[in-house]
Design a protein around this nucleic acid. Structure first.
Length: 1138
RNA sequence: GCCGCUGUGGUGGAAUGGUAGACACGCUUGACUCAAAAUCAAGUGGGGGCAACUCCGUGUCGGUUCGAGUCCGACCAGCGGUACCA
C-alpha cells in the first residue's frame, strides 16, 4: 500500500496546477455564470502569512473551488496592499529600499499562499506600490479633485508623533494611534481631505441593498452617526448663536447655552468683566491633550461669559457659558442645555451652581441690629426666596410679629444638614406660608454674608445667605402651624414698595438685581417633560395619585408592598400608592395612604417629584385601563408606632408590607412607573426619556415626535430655527507626511495655484532616494528632494513645486477589486467590458477590524465612481462576511512578544496543507473567534490518513475473486448509497450557508461509516466493485474543495487524467435519501419514554399502536387517562395524559 | 451609558420547536509491544440503581406550547464596537 506523504504530493500538484493555469478566470465568458470571490489582500509585512490570513484565504478558496465545480466562471484573485509605514520603518531599520523590502516580502507571501494550495488566478496579481498600479490610484484621485470631493484645508489634525504623520479619525482609537499605540496630538497643518461626508446618507442607505452581517452594518451606521433634530438661533448681544439639538421638544427647558472653547463667537460675546476668566479657560482647554479630554467621568468645568440669551419659548434668561464638554467639531459647536432632561447638562448645572454657591459674596453688617463687640459669632447657612405672585406683579414678603422693626423681609430659613438650598426653601415656604404650588425655582445671585445681633437668641449671628427666585403656579395653600402663624405675617407687595421696605442691605441688593433683570450665571433646572410609562389605550380613566416611598434611616430599608407574583399587568413589588381627592394636599394624601395601608403614623415628609409620572396601567380590581398622574413623595420613618390599618376585608389580604434593604429596592420594584418615581426621588439625575410636555406654553400636552415636529415648525415660522440632520462622520484626512505612499498628483504654482498633473503625465513616480526618514516639522521627506520637488507648471510652464504629501495606505485598497478584473490594462484602470462582466463582488471575506476603515472608504470610492459613470454598480460588494480571530492555544491573542504565534509554514511542514486546511474549517464556525489547538489539528490529521488508507484499500481490492457476498446485496448497496447521498445533501446545504465546520464533521461521519469493520469488509468483496468505485469517486469529489491535493492524487490514482477540480460537483438524489426504517420517538407528557422502529410511511394509528405496545411506554400509560395524542409522522408520538 | 454579538460536558463545538451533547480533542479501560509511541476496540454530562430503568441538566427568573437549547418578556455575565456627538 502506498504511504500518504503530503510533502511529495502537495508540491507536485501545486506545480502542475500553476503550469496548466488551472484556475484562470476568463473575462467575458458567457457560457457560464460568473462568481467573484474576494478576500482582503494582505499587507506584505516581513513576518509573513499568519494564522488569520490562512483562515481567511482557506475559507475563500473552499468557496471558490466549490463554485468552480458547480460550473461557475470563478474569479479568485490576490494581491498586496504594499504601501504603508511598517514597510518604510522596516526598510529604514534594515537600510534597504522599501521597493526591495516589498519585493522580498511579496515573494514570501506568494510562496506561502501557493504552499497552501489556493486556487488563486496568479495572472491577475496586483501590488499597490507598483507604478503601473498607482498610476490609476492617482488618476482616480484626480477625478475626486475635479468634482471638488478632494480639497485642501488647514485643520487641526490627529498627529502621531512616533510615526510622524497625520492620521484619519478612523485611525485613532482611544486617543491613540491604532497601529502603534502612541497618544495622538493635535497639529494644525494644511491637509488634503476627502469629502466623505457628502456620501454619509448614501453610505447608510446603501447598506439596505447589500448583505452585510448586522454587526458590520450597525457598526457603520453608528460610526456615520446620523441624527435628526433642529438648528435654533439665539440672539446674544449683536451675535447670533446657532445651536444644534436632537431634542427641540425640550426647548422650554433650555436654561443656558454652552459654547465649545474653540467656538469663534466666544470672544465677541464675552463681557468685559468676564474676559480674563474666559480667556484663561479657553487657553487651558486648548492645552489639554486629546487623551485627557476624552477621559470618561472627568468633572465638568466651564466659565460664564457674562452674556445672557433669551429662551424664545419660556421667555427666561439663559446664561451663556463656555465649557469643554461641548465639542467644537460636532453640530455647530454650541448647544442649548436642558439640565432637567440631559445628563451632561444636568451634571454641568449642578457643578457650576455648587461652585457659585460656594463663593463668598460681599459681607454686610446689619446697622439696625449691629453685632455686639467682643462676643463670638454663631454661623448659619441661610436661604431666602424672592417669591413671585402667580398672576400679578407682586412679591411675597414677611413681617415678623413681635419684633420692633417695621421692615419686611424675604421668606427665609436655615438650611439643615443634608439639604440643598432649593430643598430648604421649598420646605420653609411650605411651613411658614403654606404655599406649595411652585412653577419654577432657581438660585439667583451670588451668596452674601451678613452679621447682626440676634435679639431673640441673644447671640451674635453670622450667616451666608443664598437667594432663590420662586415663581408660584397658584395660590394653593396647605395649613400653617399655629406657632408659625404667631411669628410671621405674609404680605403681597409691588416691586417698588417691597424694595423700599425690605430689611437689610444685602436683601435689597439681590432683590433689586433680580427685579432689574441683572444677568446671572446661575442655572435653573426646569422640567418640561412629564415621563410616560405604560401604554395609553385612548379610553384611559384618569386620576391624580401619589406614590409614597417610606424610608427608614436607622435600618437603611425602604417599605414596599408585596402584591404577590408579578403578572403581565398586575402584582409584584410596589411602593405605597393611592388616589388623591380633588384639591387634597399631596403630602396629606400620602400620609393617609401610608397609615391606611401599613399603619405607620409617624412619617416625616422629605421632598416630592416636581412633575408627575403619567402611568398607564391596567387596573385588575376595576377591570379597566387607568392613567394615573403619579407624584412621588419621599418620607422618613420617625418611629415604629403603628395604628390599625383601615382597610376593607377584601383589600387586606391582597398585599403584605415588606421592608427591603435600600440597595435592593431598585431591582425589586417591578413596575415601570414606580421605577421612574424612585429614580426621580432618590437619585439626583436628569430624566432623559420622552414624555408629555409641560411648562412649554402652547405646546403643553404634546408628546414625543409630535412635540418635536410642532416646535421645529414653530421655530421655522418664527424665523429662528429649522430642522437639521447632523453626522458624527468627519471628512477623511487624506494626507500622509511619508515617503512610502502614492504621491498626490498635483503641483503648486505661484501663478496658477493648485494644478492637477495632467492624466497623460501619470504616474507621478516616487523618486528613488537614499534617505526618506520622516521629519518632525510635519513636512513630507519628499520636500527635501529638490530635483523631484521642483518642476514646471502644466498650465503656464512656469516654475512650480510638486505636492509632497502622499496618500494613506487606504487609497490603494479603495479600488483594488476593480483592478483584478483587468489587471494589466495601461489605458484605463479597468476596461469597461471587464467591469460590466464581473460586476459586483459576490462575496467579500475579511476581518472585522476594517469595518469603519477600509470597508467604509472603499464603499465611498465606489459610490463616487458609480456617480461618475465609471463603474456599473452603486455598491462594490454584494455580500460581506468576516472571519473570526484565531487566538493562540493559551486563549490570548497571537503575538510575537508572547511567543505564541502559529506559523503556517511550520504546520504545513509537519501535517501537510490539506490537514491544515481541514482543521481551519473544522475548528469552529468560520465567524467565531476560537483558540488554536495543535491536539485537535492532529485529530484532523488522523482523519486525512484514514481517508488515504481507505482510498488505497478500496482501490486495491481484487475486482474478481469468486466469493458470494452474504446477505441482501440490494439492501447493502442502498445503505451505502444512502450514507453517500445524505453526506452530499449535508455538504450541499452547509457549503451554501458557510457552515464549514459541520461539512468536515459530515465527511468524518461518512468515512466512519465506510471504515466500520462490517461495512468495509463487505465493501471489499468482489461483488461490490461498482459500488466501491462510485463511493470512492464521490468521496474524492466531496473532499476536493477542502483537501484539494489529497483529492487530486486519489482522483488520478483512480485513473482519471483531468483535474478533479474541473469535475462537476456531485448532485444528491433525493430518492436515495429515503430510509427503510425510521426511529420514532415516543413521549408521555413530553418526556422521552422509548422509541419504536417504523416504516417511513406508517400511518398515525399504526404509529400509536406501535407506541402503546412499547413496554416502557405502556408502563407509563398504565392507570392514567390519555387526553390527547400528538403524532408527527416519521418523528414522534406524544401522549398527553392526566 | 449606547449599539451589536455570545452564553450548551473537562475542551472546541453539534442540534428545520420534536431522542440535548453529533463530530473531534482529552480522559479511562482493553488489544498489539520487552517497553513506549503509533494504531485498533470499548466507554465517557451529573446523581440513584445489580439491572430494567429513573431523577436532574443548555447563564438566571418568568411566559407561550402536547413538547423549548431553539420562540417571547425581564434580568445576569462575557466579548466586540462606540462614547461628553447635545
Amino acid at each position: 500500500m502506498k504511504r500518504y506523504n503530503p510533502r511529495d504530493i502537495e508540491p507536485k500538484w501545486q506545480q502542475i496546477w500553476a503550469n496548466t493555469k488551472l484556475y484562470a478566470a476568463k473575462n467575458g465568458d458567457q457560457t457560464r455564470p460568473k462568481y467573484y470571490m474576494l478576500t482582503e489582500f494582505p499587507y506584505p509585512s516581513g513576518d509573513g502569512l499568519h494564522a488569520g490570513h490562512a483562515r481567511e484565504y482557506t475559507i475563500g478558496d473552499v468557496i471558490a473551488r466549490h463554485k468552480r465545480m458547480q460550473g461557475y466562471n470563478v474569479l479568485f484573485p490576490m494581491g498586496y496592499d504594499a504601501f504603508g509605514l511598517p514597510t518604510e520603518n522596516y526598510a529604514i531599520k534594515h537600510k534597504v529600499t522599501p521597493q526591495s523590502a516589498t519585493a522580498r516580502n511579496t515573494a514570501m507571501f506568494r510562496q506561502q499562499m501557493q504552499s497552501l494550495g489556493y486556487s488563486i488566478d496568479w495572472d491577475r496579481e496586483v501590488n499597490t506600490s507598483d507604478p503601473a498600479y498607482y498610476k490609476w490610484t492617482q488618476w482616480l484621485f484626480l477625478r475626486f479633485l475635479e468634482q471638488g470631493l478632494a480639497y485642501q484645508a488647514e485643520l487641526p489634525i490627529n498627529w502621531c508623533p512616533f510615526e510622524k504623520t497625520g492620521l484619519a479619525n478612523e485611525e485613532v482609537v482611544d486617543g491613540k494611534h491604532e497601529r502603534c499605540g502612541t497618544p495622538v496630538e493635535k497639529k494644525l497643518l494644511k491637509q488634503w481631505v476627502m469629502r466623505i461626508t457628502d456620501y454619509a446618507d448614501r453610505l447608510i442607505d446603501g447598506l439596505k441593498s447589500i448583505d452585510y452581517p448586522s454587526r458590520i452594518s450597525s457598526q457603520q451606521i453608528n460610526w456615520i452617526g446620523r441624527s435628526e433634530g433642529a438648528e435654533i438661533e439665539f440672539a446674544v448681544d449683536d451675535e447670533v448663536l446657532t445651536v444644534y439639538t436632537t431634542r427641540p421638544d425640550t426647548l422650554a427647558g433650555a436654561t443656558f447655552l454652552v459654547l465649545a472653547p474653540e467656538h469663534p463667537a466666544v470672544t465677541a460675546i464675552t463681557a468685559a468683566e468676564q474676559r480674563a476668566a474666559v480667556e484663561a479657560y479657553v487657553k487651558q482647554a486648548q492645552a489639554e491633550s486629546e487623551l485627557a479630554r476624552q477621559a470618561t467621568d472627568r468633572p465638568k468645568t466651564g466659565v460664564w461669559t457674562g452674556a445672557v440669551a433669551k429662551n424664545p419659548l419660556s421667555g427666561r434668561d439663559m446664561p451663556v457659558w463656555v465649557a469643554d464638554y461641548v465639542l467644537a467639531g460636532y453640530g455647530t459647536g454650541a448647544i442649548m442645555a436642558v439640565p432637567a432632561h440631559d445628563e451632561r447638562d444636568f451634571a454641568f448645572a449642578k457643578a457650576m451652581n455648587q461652585r457659585l454657591l460656594a463663593t463668598e459674596g460681599p459681607e454686610y453688617i446689619d446697622k439696625e441690629t449691629a453685632p455686639r463687640p467682643n462676643e463670638p459669632f454663631h454661623h448659619r447657612e441661610v436661604v431666602q426666596a424672592i417669591v413671585k405672585h402667580p398672576t400679578e406683579d407682586k412679591y411675597l414678603l414677611q413681617r415678623m410679629l413681635g419684633w420692633e422693626t417695621k421692615s419686611l423681609s424675604l421668606v427665609s430659613g436655615g438650611i439643615e444638614s443634608g439639604e440643598d438650598p432649593l430643598q430648604a426653601i421649598v420646605r420653609e415656604l411650605r411651613e411658614e406660608t403654606g404655599y406649595v404650588h411652585i412653577k419654577s425655582l432657581a438660585v439667583t445671585g451670588l451668596p452674601y454674608g451678613v452679621k447682626f445681633y440676634h435679639e431673640h437668641k441673644k447671640v451674635n449671628r453670622s450667616a451666608r445667605v443664598t437667594t432663590v427666585f420662586i415663581q408660584l403656579e397658584s395660590l394653593r395653600q396647605v395649613a400653617v402651624a399655629a406657632e408659625e402663624q404667631a411669628l410671621n405675617e405674609s404680605v403681597w407687595t409691588g416691586a417698588k414698595e417691597a424694595l423700599s421696605q425690605l430689611h437689610g442691605e444685602g436683601a435689597r441688593r439681590v432683590f433689586n438685581e433680580h427685579t432689574a433683570g441683572e444677568p446671572t450665571p446661575f442655572i435653573a433646572i426646569t422640567p418640561v417633560i412629564e415621563p410616560i410609562t405604560g401604554t395609553p389605550h385612548g379610553d384611559d380613566h384618569e386620576k391624580e395619585a401619589i406614590v409614597a416611598v417610606v424610608h427608614n434611616a436607622k435600618t437603611n430599608e425602604t417599605l414596599l408592598l408585596d402584591w404577590g407574583p408579578r403578572h403581565s399587568n398586575w402584582g409584584g413589588m410596589l411602593f405605597i400608592g393611592g388616589g388623591v381627592e380633588p384639591g387634597e394636599d399631596l403630602v396629606k394624601a400620602a400620609e393617609r395612604e401610608i397609615a391606611e395601608e401599613t399603619g405607620y403614623k409617624h412619617v416625616k415628609f422629605v421632598h416630592q417629584t416636581e412633575v408627575p409620572v403619567n402611568n398607564y396601567y391596567y387596573s385588575n380590581v376595576k377591570d379597566r385601563h387607568d392613567k394615573a398622574r403619579m407624584y412621588g413623595l419621599l418620607f422618613e420613618l420617625e418611629d415604629d408606632a403603628q395604628t390599625d390599618t383601615n382597610m376593607d376585608e377584601g383589600e387586606k389580604d391582597k398585599f403584605t408590607p415588606k421592608w427591603v434593604p435600600d440597595d435592593e429596592v431598585f431591582s425589586t420594584v417591578n413596575d415601570g412607573g414606580h421605577e421612574v418615581i424612585y429614580r426621580m426621588l432618590m437619585r439626583d439625575e436628569a430624566y432623559p426619556g420622552e414624555g408629555v410636555l409641560v411648562n412649554s406654553g402652547q405646546f403643553d400636552g404634546l408628546s414625543g415626535i409630535e412635540a418635536k415636529r410642532a416646535i421645529t415648525k414653530w421655530l421655522f415660522d418664527q424665523g429662528i430655527g429649522r430642522g437639521a440632520t447632523k453626522f458624527k462622520l468627519r471628512d477623511w484626512i487624506f494626507s500622509r507626511q511619508h515617503y512610502w505612499g502614492e504621491p498626490i498628483p498635483v503641483v503648486h504654482c505661484a501663478k496658477c495655484g493648485v494644478v492637477p498633473v495632467p492624466d497623460d503625465q501619470l504616474p507621478v513616480e516616487l523618486p528613488q532616494v537614499d534617505h526618506y526618514e520622516p521629519t518632525d516639522d510635519g513636512q513630507s521627506p519628499l520636500a527635501a528632494i529638490d530635483e523631484w520637488v521642483n518642476t514646471t507648471c502644466p498650465t503656464c510652464g512656469g516654475p512650480a513645486r510638486r505636492e509632497t504629501d502622499t496618500m494613506p495606505n487606504w487609497a490603494g485598497s479603495s479600488w483594488y477589486w476593480l483592478r483584478y478584473m483587468d489587471a494589466h490594462n495601461d489605458q484605463a484602470f479597468a476596461d469597461r467590458a471587464a467591469l460590466d462582466y464581473w460586476g459586483v463582488v459576490d462575496l467579500y471575506l475579511g476581518g472585522m477590524e476594517h469595518t469603519t476603515l477600509h470597508l467604509l472608504y472603499s464603499r465611498f470610492w465606489h459610490q463616487f465612481l458609480y456617480d461618475q459613470g465609471l463603474v456599473p454598480t452603486p455598491e462594490p460588494y454584494a455580500a460581506r462576511r468576516g472571519q473570526g480571530i484565531v487566538l493562540a492555544a493559551d486563549g490570548r491573542k497571537m503575538s510575537k512578544s508572547l511567543g505564541n504565534v502559529v506559523n503556517p509554514t511550520d504546520v504545513i511542514a509537519q501535517y501537510g496543507a490539506d490537514a491544515f486546511r481541514l482543521y481551519i474549517l473544522f475548528m469552529a464556525p468560520y465567524d467565531e473567534t476560537t483558540p488554536w489547538s495543535e491536539e485537535r489539528l492532529s485529530g484532523v490529521s488522523r482523519f486525512v490518513y484514514r481517508v488515504w488508507s481507505l482510498g488505497q484499500e478500496l482501490m486495491a481490492a481484487p475486482a474478481a475473486i469468486a466469493a458470494e457476498p452474504a446477505g441482501d446485496q440490494g439492501a447493502f448497496e442502498a445503505e451505502v448509497d444512502r450514507a453517500t447521498h445524505k453526506t452530499l445533501k449535508k455538504l450541499h446545504d452547509d457549503l451554501e450557508s458557510m457552515r464549514f465546520n459541520t461539512t468536515v464533521s459530515a465527511l468524518m461521519e461518512y468515512v466512519n461509516v465506510l471504515t466500520d469493520a462490517k461495512v468495509k469488509s463487505r465493501l471489499l468483496q468482489p461483488a461490490n466493485a461498482a459500488l466501491r468505485q462510485r463511493t470512492l469517486r464521490t468521496l474524492i469529489l466531496m473532499l476536493a474543495p477542502s483537501a484539494p491535493h489529497l483529492a487530486e492524487e486519489l482522483w488520478h490514482e483512480l485513473g482519471e487524467t483531468t483535474s478533479v477540480h474541473l469535475a462537476g460537483w456531485p448532485q444528491y438524489d433525493p430518492a436515495l435519501l429515503q430510509d427503510d426504517v425510521v426511529t420514532v420517538v415516543v413521549q408521555v407528557n413530553g418526556k422521552l419514554r422509548g422509541n419504536i422502529l417504523a416504516t417511513p410511511d406508517a400511518t398515525e394509528p399504526e404509529l400509536i399502536a406501535l407506541a402503546q405496545a412499547e413496554p416502557n411506554v405502556a408502563k407509563h400509560l398504565d392507570g392514567v387517562q390519555i387526553v390527547k395524542i400528538i403524532v408527527v409522522p416519521r418523528k414522534l408520538v406524544n401522549f398527553v395524559v392526566k
